[in-house]
Design a protein around this nucleic acid. Sequence first.
DNA 1: AATTCGTGGTG
DNA 2: TCACCAAGAAT
Length: 315
Amino acid sequence: MLGGVAVHQQVRAWFRESARDLPWRGGCSAWGVLVSEIMLQQTPVVRVQPVWEQWMSRWPTPASFAAESQGEILRAWGRLGYPRRALRVHAAAAMIVEQHDGEVPDTFEALLTLPGIGTYTAAAVAAFAFGRRETVVDTNIRRVHARLVIGQALPAPTLTAAEMKLAADLLPHDPAESVEWNAAVMELGALVCTARSPKCGLCPVRTECAWIAAGQPEPTYMPKGQPWAGTDRQVRGAVMAVLRAADAPIHADLLWASDTELATTAPLAHPAEVATALGKLHDLNTQAPQLERALAGLLADGLAQLSDDGYHLPH
DNA sequence: AATTCGTGGTG
DNA sequence: TCACCAAGAAT
């Protein structure tokens, strides 16, 4: 399989030499690994790390975290994005307390039952927190495999069974080696075999790479973009920023306010940050139906609540 | 299977 | 500048 043990040794040697010193690697609690993995879903390391540090200092155990209010957790989540993840960690912590005596479960199957934990995260926690031999497949590993083994610039648009089989076939038999292999391939994808402008000159296995051997062919499909301007997501994000900044309910009129007077005077009852966040929301010039849709979505997802005094984070 | 769900750095 | 992209999950 792909040059026998040579590729594995080269990648793992590169990892030991070049890996970033991330705080959730080595000696970290399983809870810390779990939190890091959920924060890292679709969010870069550099933005996760400072928030993760604060969380570990503030809530060192699932029980301490489960006892916190959802609103405080959403504020602490800050601008990491996809705030529903914060609520899912909270629900997962509650399940860990209730069903697992406060200890993060140590098997793929048990982890998979927790909210916010899918196949990738369950495998990653089982491997990196408990040393288990798991087939870990994230976007970095998919891309490295696509290039190194298949010879394509990018993996398929969606994860396929063939990719899972390839990853399973490449996984070293020894558990300890498999854990390092998973981390090493992921790190190679993050630092060298990147999506745009890969640093092939620094790659430890460039001489074994099927993509380089094939002359680095272009992607065979158009990566579908992620529209942002004018979307409901943009409005939801702007509303959430207002609610995070507020220490009291925000009256609905403020969210809709387009006239300068209301938008600048009424927020004075709130911290200055609220006025800033409201200004950004109003700058979007959102049409009423879209704002209503965004608010309804936030309520449905439990990210916001509506009382007589207005919208606020959940208690 | 295709959508939805935030945010900010960057080539 | 602006489209692309990031340790995905849920539906």
